[in-house]
Design a protein around this nucleic acid. Structure first.
Lengths: 194, 194, 194, 194
DNA sequence: CATGAATGAGTATTCATTCAT
DNA sequence: CATGAATGAATACTCATTCAT
């Protein structure tokens, strides 16, 4: 499981394409290998098993996204602005990567419970970012002082996720990024912000 | 496909239990049959194939839930009250049926895309109920007149769904129904209601 | 297994139609029952099992055919004439009954070995008729005195059968009965007749 | 579907044995695999499906037989001699391979219509050899000039096939090869030859 | 006699993973 | 490091037959 060598990312990128184009259940290891231009057996030099490819895929993509978010919101003053920046970054990421959008919103959801549990573990990093924004907003008085952070986080994540999934299911025919401001406004209203 | 005879519901109820206890991929037809107390072949006198069991399961459970919701909210005056009633009914339904909660929130999501498309078709009835509440609320002046109904609906559904899923994933350790009022408040705030 | 009642033949005739129209492996007992206008269970009041329907079918059809042949050739003087009459009767029977031709030449052949053994048993009655003609022909000096009756019988039966099967496989596009005289001539030549 | 590697023929030979010893319907893929000494899945590296094994079996065996026949009859002068050579080769082939005789004469006949159609397609190569002999014989004046080649071919094939099938059904208790000359004589007589 | 709902045994095929080269 | 041929476990569905009514 050597992450330094180029084939590691090569296989992950191949997996995204193979899953997006064939669907989760039709993306056999041999198809991913072919897409990556390596032999089937080579996959197992870099990943423990098929599930490990998918978890690594999610980890790598989500990891770099969270890093990016962290940088972006560091430059913003208010929690309100930070939340908007986050939503915009989230919508932007998936708008720009068609394959990734299909894989994360539709295909990876039909993985088994075990895998989904592990994906949720990775998602916690993202949820922490949301929590941080919310807590800061409460402290600064931007958001209502009796805001239930857990519920608010579920609202933020649930709303964003549902918005993106609907967009993917509607074959991405409208501009997702344009929805960031109104979605943001709805959420801010909810938190008692202005 | 005779819905009138008791075995139809008997098999559907058995499927809920078998899936909840064994997981989607481990709920073989023979396991469902055994749970229902019928022979494997009997399943096929009432359902076209395995997928048909799952679609019917969702249709029956969701259908009766939507009917119930319709009755409940008919007795409420304001859209705000109707939304609360809906959230409470939703949380109540799944709080009372442990197996059903697991099946709808976790297991059925890992079905293939075809099946999920059909499930989404059934879900549209539920989304229509939400839409009706939102439109009424806008007309009556309860909600902001420039509320985007589609986004608002996605927020309602996304928030409720995420709240329930989190609760199921946390092994239902806290009282889901108690969350209805705060969740409701967050949403109402979002819509510019009081 | 009461042969006297009308339902016995009713089921046999239904079987011929069901097999001809659906093919041997697609002619389920329930399809035969439906075609006969009786319940599935009723079949088992008249036949021991599915195989029994098919054997009975062959026995009845072949039995009445052999009776008819016997009468027809009784009126003929020479063995040569008798053979011609037999070939004509054989071709005539199957020309007139499209369904029966398909069933005996194509569909029933894909039954299992057991059933085919039993069918062969029934066929022996037919082979005896051929043998009788051949022996008579030798005795009367019409055919060569050193004709091997077994081989000659296999030639007669093989030739007739192959001719009919080819005709059925070619979708019965040409006149089978017109082939009786030339086929007969080929065989008579073979036997050293004139 | 790599025909060059030894496992291809290994599996075909195993199929002949498995079918001859267990019967067509009892020759499961796993039985064939076991007989061939490979895993079930290995079968599918060389054949598309079970039907493909059977078609390939017939194609390989019949193909090599037709090649052999072609060589053998090339050395013969008259059509009469060629026909005798062909019958002898046919009887010889099946006399020497007990399993193959059972498979082609009894077991493969109970395959479904689709498979039988494909087998018939392969058989056409054999029928062409017969036709060639008959046409040559007519041209050379060995056979009657008004011989109907199609009927004659059906007589040749029907007679040979029926003779072999009878021999197999009688448990091969007599010498099939000894029947070649008398069968040949019967046919030649039929064609007006000497 | 007649019904038809219920039964349950039986099998081709896929695909993640291994390991000899 | 890399290969790819070989492995073998695992499962939905059909249909001849029964038997309570």
């Amino acid at each position: 499981m050597n992450k330094s060598r180029p084939k590691y990312m090569q296989i992950i990128d191949a997996a995204v394409i193979a899953i997006a184009e064939n669907g989760y259940h039709q993306a056999q290891v041999s198809k991913i290998a072919k897409q990556a231009g390596v032999a089937d057996g080579t996959i197992y030099l870099y990943f423990k098993n098929k599930e490990d490819i998918l978890i690594s895929l999610f980890k790598e993509k989500m990891g770099s996204y969270i890093e990016e978010i962290d940088k972006l919101i560091a430059g913003k003053q208010t929690s309100t602005e930070k939340l908007l920046m986050m939503i915009e970054a989230h919508f932007d990421l998936l708008s720009k990567d068609h394959h990734l959008a299909i894989v994360t919103q539709l295909e990876l959801r039909q993985s088994n419970k075990d895998l989904r549990m592990k994906i949720n573990e990775i998602l916690k990093g993202y949820l922490k970012v949301i929590d941080k924004i919310l807590i800061e907003g409460k402290e600064k008085g931007e958001f209502s002082s009796n805001l239930d952070v857990r519920l608010a986080r579920q609202m933020v994540f649930g709303t964003i996720d549902e918005t993106v999934t609907s967009w993917v299911m509607n074959e991405e025919k409208y501009d997702l990024k344009a929805l960031a401001p109104p979605v943001h406004q709805l959420l801010i209203n909810g938190f008692g912000g202005r």
